[in-house]
Design a protein around this nucleic acid. Structure first.
Lengths: 339, 339
DNA sequence: TTGTATGCGTTATCAG
DNA sequence: CTGATAACGCATACAA
């Protein structure tokens, strides 16, 4: 039986209680060096009884190592982000690494702020889920020698490890699927090019497919919108203003949310999917399987993407090498009833 | 656990470069005490040039204060969780607090593990988004004197601050809406009671409404399922096995996902919503507005819930009082086309 | 106003 | 095998 001092316990308290030196306690805590079984047992007992928990900050101060990984995301409440973070979380957990999460709301200022806070906390590395690549920030980080892995954007040419999807190829394949189904006029609902992958690459894939099949690109069929909830509906509304032979017979939306919004609009206009108009999305969010008709879309392994990025970080950290790996995740078409 | 690249500057380096003492640097860093403007400028210049970033762990070791808040969630990739975390994040950011996120996958073991890691990191407090209340854990935390706020579960009777929704009342109100629309046989798609609020309270609200209106409770109309993707469809399938007058004319699902799943099933059976059968959900996830017919549901302010919890934590931290506040968030019916 | 010295809780070194 | 003791980077009481 030992008395528990009511302050926060330190390793010294444990040592005193167990009548040993602090170094011996440290050894049993870290399983390093030799400690006589009997002494070890005594110390373990004291630790268990006192519920002693070593201080990570102190440990880090001394050992200069951190169990913290900073994770930057543009928006927490999105399907994609959720999946990626879940993958990261699952991969980090076994290493007893903790995730410091910063939501930037797509603001460069907040991104900067987040990086600053991460540096103060002395995170071991940063996983950055990005929609665009902020060069000054990348430079600063590299200069600071902070290991980082970019998710969703390719900056391997800048020496930054990246885990990405082949967005262009995926969008092209989905567009070709529509073409193979006989569609010649395919509407595109997309977003601004600031979002390099979604607004840029997916759009490029669509264009590539049309050109490869000798179809002309009609600017009237391309509508750029935003990510807000009603965006898909509004975009489809625009597309429906075209009548007769100018109207498209299929719509490719660059995200599932946009696609589902478009389907809602078509439904409200009494236009049947896919008989009157086919609709396809990209991303395979949970919604895709649940709506009716079920949405044809591109399936990405977002959880796997997060896991890969986290694993890459762990590897970089304990190998000390930062050879700017570039991992391209696989994708597949998930064809359902909407096309 | 990994070694940090170690060419990092310390406050001593800055002091040397600016030709002052470390305490003066500390004073300008923290805006405390008096520093001659000229000297301050010189130090600021050095800090800017060197991109010096003070070490939070060291600071914490000295001052025994932490800028870390632990956040425990059962599942990251859900609409509700995303919103709550977004609210927390937005509230914490201005105070330059960082969020340590732990995903427990609804496992008690992982929950325990997360708390343990939080204690090691010396987090200032814990925000816990819970589906059930784990008494031993609560006891341990209280004993450890770690401030905490429970989100989604009421443990104020145990002396734990809680931010909750009035689930029972909300479910009852939605059920009454269905009753007022003339429905007498209302199916319930719910989940296990381990999830106290969703499986327990929302179900209780449904029962209360029936009883208050003198309607009998038919066990055949209550199906308990899970949260998995196909759960809603399967549950509706079960409900449809009842024919003629035994079949319900409306379905209340305890989450929007379940409701949307049920609607998909009805669609596949050629049953029109709401003409042949009304469907209502709870939660007002983004899906609710996007599906067709748009889903009638209960709207909760999840982001506000997270924000309140975070604010409560900040208050507890700087007032040092922990009077077990209990905040009940408002809700409202969001009636759309499905009922 | 400014600088010096001390200690926060650990680990690592180095004698016992 | 074990135990003093010196850092780690910072804030702060105390001196100057």
């Amino acid at each position: 039986m030992v008395t528990i001092p009511d302050k926060r316990l330190t390793i010294r308290d444990i040592a005193a209680l167990a009548k040993v030196g602090t170094s011996t306690v440290s050894r049993v805590l870290n399983n390093s060096g030799y400690v006589k079984a009997e002494v070890r047992a005594r110390i373990d007992a004291v630790i268990a009884q006192t519920r002693y928990t070593p201080s990570e900050p102190a440990k880090q101060l001394k050992s200069r190592r951190s169990g913290l990984i900073g994770v930057i995301i543009p928006k927490i409440n999105s399907y994609t982000t959720g999946e990626v973070v879940a993958g990261i979380s699952a991969t980090l957990a076994p290493s007893r690494c903790q995730m410091l999460l910063a939501n930037t709301d797509n603001s460069v200022a907040q991104e900067q702020e987040a990086y600053d806070l991460f540096r103060r906390q002395r995170v071991a590395g940063v996983l950055h889920l990005a929609t665009t690549v902020n060069d000054p920030l990348v430079d600063a980080m590299r200069e600071a020698g902070l290991p980082m892995v970019l998710i969703g954007q390719d900056a391997s040419h800048l020496g930054i490890a990246s885990v990405i999807q082949n967005e262009r190829s995926a969008a092209r394949m989905m567009t070709e699927h529509l073409i193979e189904n006989g569609h010649r006029r395919i509407g595109l609902v997309t977003v601004g090019e600031e979002d390099i992958q979604v607004g840029g690459e997916r759009t490029a894939g669509y264009l590539e497919a049309l050109q490869a099949h000798g179809l002309s690109v009609d600017p009237e069929l391309i509508v750029r919108t935003s990510f807000k909830a009603e965006a898909g509906e509004e975009a489809a509304e625009r597309l429906l203003r075209l009548t007769g032979s100018r109207r498209c017979t299929a719509i490719l939306a660059v995200t599932d949310r946009l696609a589902v919004g478009a389907m809602a609009c078509l439904h409200d206009h009494g236009i049947r999917v896919p008989q009157d108009m086919a609709v396809a999305g990209v991303g395979d969010s949970d919604m895709a399987r649940m709506v009716r008709p079920a949405l044809s879309t591109v399936h990405y392994d977002y959880a796997g993407t997060g896991a890969q990025a986290a694993q890459l970080m762990m590897d970089m950290l304990d190998a000390q090498h930062s050879d700017a790996a570039r991992i391209v995740m696989p994708y597949r078409l998930a064809l359902r009833r909407s096309t």
